[in-house]
């Protein structure tokens, strides 16, 4: 497992995400209310670039004719067939036991720790005073 520094935390504010390239693999890095999560940019259903889908809320299971949303920003809707994935777990909302988007280990680490290495950070000069998003894969 190699640690890859992919962004400064400040570059992915809460409610945003970005797709990064990690040794040829595309990974979506999401900041959900200050917590970071990462998913492989590939839908487990049919191969779409999952992380290019819309970040959405959960449309709650409800009574008939009632429409309500909750957990804003915690779900990802695949841009092809619209399957919904919980960003935190990668699980499909409809079929969580069977269908999961591939989760990537993600951590936020202080520059002063990181400079001790080892890590891969092709496009980053790590400075001790910043925080970084680090993916392990």
């Amino acid at each position: 497992m190699i640690r890859h520094i992919v962004a400064k935390t400040a570059e992915i504010p809460a409610g945003t995400h970005r797709i990064v390239d990690v040794s040829g693999r595309q990974v979506g890095v999401f900041n959900v209310n200050g917590e970071f999560f990462a998913l492989l940019n590939r839908c487990p259903h049919g191969g779409a670039e999952l992380c290019k889908g819309a970040v959405t809320a959960l449309v709650q299971p409800s009574g008939v004719g009632q429409y309500a949303v909750s957990r804003k920003g915690e779900f990802l809707r695949c841009p092809w067939h619209g399957w919904e994935f919980e960003i935190r777990s990668g699980q499909s909302y409809c079929d969580p036991a069977r269908i999961k988007a591939r989760k990537i280990d993600v951590a936020v680490e202080r520059g002063e720790e990181l400079v001790k290495g080892p890590y891969v950070a092709e496009s980053y000069d790590v400075t001790v005073e910043d925080d970084y998003v680090v993916l392990s894969l």
Binding site: P61, S62, G65, H81, G82, S92, C94
Partner: peptide, 15 residues
């Protein structure tokens, strides 16, 4: 279809 259009009919709560 449900996997893709669930949000149209959120009262359908399982397969």
């Amino acid at each position: 279809m449900w996997l893709g259009v669930r949000t149209e009919l959120p009262w359908i709560d399982r397969m």
